[in-house]
Measured scan of single mutants.
Amino acid sequence: EVPFKVVAQFPYKSDYEDDLNFEKDQEIIVTSVEDAEWYFGEYQDSNGDVIEGIFPKSFVAVQG
């Protein structure tokens, strides 16, 4: 069931425009499960802007 919160276990950096880049310990709200390997989610950056994109499930852990 979406949405749910995950926390980055590792930093994720990608050159693909659709990917969500983040640092370790970033909290991310997952709004869609793309497939067995990928989530789609969002978070607010330090400027208060909402950043969204896809990212690999293996880089995050589900909270709770």
Results as ranks from 00 to 15, higher is better:
residue 1 E to D: 13
residue 1 E to K: 12
residue 1 E to T: 13
residue 2 V to H: 06
residue 2 V to G: 05
residue 4 F to P: 02
residue 5 K to Y: 10
residue 5 K to H: 08
residue 5 K to D: 03
residue 6 V to T: 04
residue 6 V to W: 00
residue 6 V to H: 00
residue 6 V to P: 03
residue 8 A to R: 00
residue 8 A to C: 06
residue 8 A to E: 03
residue 9 Q to C: 15
residue 9 Q to H: 07
residue 9 Q to G: 04
residue 9 Q to K: 14
residue 10 F to A: 10
residue 10 F to M: 12
residue 11 P to Y: 05
residue 11 P to E: 10
residue 11 P to C: 11
residue 11 P to L: 04
residue 12 Y to S: 03
residue 12 Y to L: 03
residue 12 Y to T: 02
residue 13 K to N: 12
residue 13 K to P: 03
residue 14 S to Y: 02
residue 15 D to M: 11
residue 15 D to I: 10
residue 15 D to T: 11
residue 16 Y to E: 12
residue 17 E to A: 13
residue 17 E to R: 11
residue 18 D to A: 14
residue 18 D to Q: 14
residue 19 D to M: 14
residue 19 D to E: 14
residue 19 D to N: 14
residue 19 D to P: 02
residue 20 L to R: 01
residue 20 L to K: 02
residue 21 N to V: 07
residue 21 N to Y: 12
residue 21 N to K: 08
residue 21 N to S: 11
residue 21 N to M: 07
residue 22 F to G: 01
residue 22 F to E: 00
residue 23 E to P: 06
residue 23 E to L: 07
residue 24 K to A: 10
residue 24 K to T: 06
residue 24 K to H: 04
residue 25 D to W: 11
residue 26 Q to T: 06
residue 27 E to I: 14
residue 27 E to R: 05
residue 27 E to V: 15
residue 28 I to Y: 03
residue 28 I to R: 01
residue 29 I to S: 07
residue 29 I to N: 07
residue 29 I to C: 15
residue 29 I to T: 14
residue 29 I to E: 05
residue 29 I to W: 14
residue 29 I to Y: 07
residue 30 V to E: 01
residue 31 T to S: 05
residue 31 T to W: 09
residue 31 T to M: 06
residue 31 T to L: 10
residue 31 T to E: 01
residue 31 T to Q: 06
residue 32 S to C: 15
residue 32 S to D: 07
residue 32 S to P: 03
residue 33 V to K: 07
residue 33 V to E: 06
residue 34 E to K: 15
residue 34 E to Q: 14
residue 34 E to Y: 15
residue 34 E to T: 13
residue 35 D to G: 12
residue 35 D to P: 05
residue 35 D to H: 07
residue 35 D to L: 07
residue 36 A to C: 14
residue 36 A to E: 13
residue 36 A to L: 09
residue 36 A to W: 08
residue 37 E to C: 15
residue 37 E to K: 08
residue 38 W to C: 10
residue 38 W to E: 01
residue 38 W to D: 00
residue 39 Y to C: 04
residue 39 Y to L: 05
residue 39 Y to F: 09
residue 39 Y to A: 00
residue 39 Y to S: 00
residue 40 F to Y: 13
residue 40 F to C: 09
residue 40 F to I: 06
residue 41 G to H: 01
residue 41 G to D: 02
residue 41 G to T: 03
residue 41 G to V: 04
residue 41 G to Y: 03
residue 41 G to L: 04
residue 41 G to W: 02
residue 42 E to I: 09
residue 42 E to G: 11
residue 42 E to C: 15
residue 42 E to H: 15
residue 42 E to Y: 15
residue 43 Y to W: 05
residue 43 Y to M: 06
residue 45 D to C: 10
residue 45 D to N: 11
residue 46 S to D: 11
residue 47 N to G: 07
residue 47 N to L: 07
residue 47 N to C: 09
residue 48 G to D: 03
residue 48 G to E: 03
residue 49 D to T: 12
residue 49 D to Q: 13
residue 49 D to V: 14
residue 49 D to W: 09
residue 50 V to P: 05
residue 50 V to D: 04
residue 51 I to V: 13
residue 51 I to E: 04
residue 51 I to L: 14
residue 52 E to T: 15
residue 52 E to Q: 15
residue 53 G to A: 01
residue 53 G to N: 02
residue 53 G to T: 01
residue 54 I to N: 10
residue 54 I to D: 01
residue 55 F to L: 02
residue 55 F to G: 03
residue 55 F to M: 00
residue 56 P to H: 06
residue 56 P to T: 04
residue 56 P to C: 06
residue 56 P to K: 03
residue 57 K to L: 06
residue 57 K to F: 08
residue 57 K to S: 11
residue 58 S to G: 08
residue 58 S to D: 11
residue 58 S to H: 10
residue 60 V to P: 04
residue 60 V to M: 00
residue 60 V to L: 02
residue 60 V to R: 00
residue 60 V to A: 04
residue 61 A to Y: 11
residue 61 A to T: 14
residue 61 A to I: 13
residue 62 V to F: 11
residue 62 V to P: 13
residue 62 V to G: 08
residue 64 G to A: 12
residue 64 G to S: 12
residue 64 G to V: 12
